[in-house]
Design a protein around this nucleic acid. Sequence first.
RNA 1: GACCCCAUCGUCUAACCAGGUUAGGACACCGGCCUUUCACGCCGUUAACGCGGGUUCAAAUCCCGCUGGGGUCACCA
Length: 530
Amino acid sequence: MPIPVSKKPVRVRVAPSPTGDPHVGTAYIGLFNLAFARSHGGQFVLRVEDTDQKRSTRQSEEAIYRSLRWAGLQWDEGPDIGGAFGPYRQSERSDIYRTHVQLLLDSGDAYRCFCTAERLDHVREEQRARKETARYDGFCRHLDPHESDARAVNEPHVVRLKFPQGGETVVPDALRGGVVYDNGQIDDQVLMKTDGLPTYHLANVVDDHLMAITHVIRAEEWLNSTPKHLALYAAFGWDPPVFAHMPLLRNADKSKISKRKNPTSLEYYQRAGILPEALLNFLGLMGYSRKDEQGQDVEKFTLDEFISDLDLQRVSLGGPVFDLQKLDWLNGLYLRAMTPEALADRVVAFQREDGRHGQAAHLVQERVTSLGDYGDHAGAFFRGTLEYGLNARYFVVGATSRKKTAVRLTRAASRAFFEDCLAQLETVIDWQPAAIEAPLRAACDKAGVAIGDGLMAIRVAAMGRPAAPPLFESLQVLGRALTLARLRVVCGLLADPNFLQRSLADVEAELTAARAARQDPTPTPEASHA
RNA sequence: GACCCCAUCGUCUAACCAGGUUAGGACACCGGCCUUUCACGCCGUUAACGCGGGUUCAAAUCCCGCUGGGGUCACCA
């Protein structure tokens, strides 16, 4: 049973929320949408879902454009390039949603709800206490329309979908067949918030319809809310699109991919020197596989090849673990396939990106003794994660301090310190030295450690060794994505109760290796001259 | 907890839908070759159908149950 495609031109979309760093999951879903559109001669739309006023930012939106373009996922219509179905930024479509909510209010498919947040919390708490599924209890569902109209004039309220009671809803998922839900356990979803902006559910349905989206290819986390979306399509009298829910990318422990356990920011991969074509290739291997004429699995392929024989039905639904090792291998494959000249060009272009090359030179200038020395000092700016080896001992804050009186944190306290630094730095959007310095100093104070000791731990985490250019400037050049990723790695290392033992074992191993090297009888060329 | 999804080597997956394969490939790992070293490359080894019932001459494949993993249960998306 192939994916249903009607005579209408295929139109798909990717709809990120600009509330943080550009996510690798967006690229994953974007890739399959783009490829599906291309393989059917259709359009690929980028829609910005910025209805969460508190969390959405323009910086994040811009970063999403940059990262998606970098990855090679160019959209046919979007906020920045326009199109026949705009605007493509939901915050600019408020009137449309208001009109549509009114339609539902008039038809009785939605109702105003005046319940306070406190009451809702209370209800949920009681339900939890009774071990019931937490859901809205329908308190305002049967309010008299006249009373509702009157109260709406000066009382804050939301609008809820009057979800049909009784019976069941079957979600036709192109990858799974029909998924059956008991209507009795689906509650009346909020469609419009007190601030007058729509929730995802309303905006998504209205926009998908108005933008003539034919196929909704999105992450599996949306599967359970599809009955509500179907109810909305029915209430409006619209034909729903074809739904296909993709598996979620996973961490090594199989949980949904998260920044704590994996680099999830596309900027990380860009700045870590991953080629966009390799990243896309790798994502195309997640939950999917291609074969050659002989029927053998193919690991390396171009976007065009991926598009040429994409068959969504072949998507395997087990959640694929995002394996960085395989990404690295694939990236290496691409690098080796280039001519040396092309590689050289690529490297130069990469180092010049974001002005990193120039900035790095500025920072390491005082430290280099020769031109060739540069790479040794600046290398850490251009890598993803670092090998710490013996230097991991610096992560125990204060442990390496020369002062006898220095405060030395325990492993757990050091971890708390790193977590604190990380949490603070995550809120720093304008990545400037001063903005980076303040929270780090505060974290040192909070942990009760000397500034120098605390910053040394951060320095080694970020730069891989204790001898490095001034920290805040270094972090600036390193960039937000790489800095945060490295701190998260160290938090992970410190979470291991055996961290100290392990690093001591590493010390032992390295000393042994060094000793063996010294006793190596092989004469050096210099020695043979003597 | 309720509901929903999912289930092949450690990881990504093929074979499943249209039952009959020594269960194939890739990453990683281990070993070897190549090589002044490392890397690359090449060769090879180890490694999986979660468990239990059915259906069938025959089950990784179809059905049921269990177990396990995941997701969702927001005025976030």
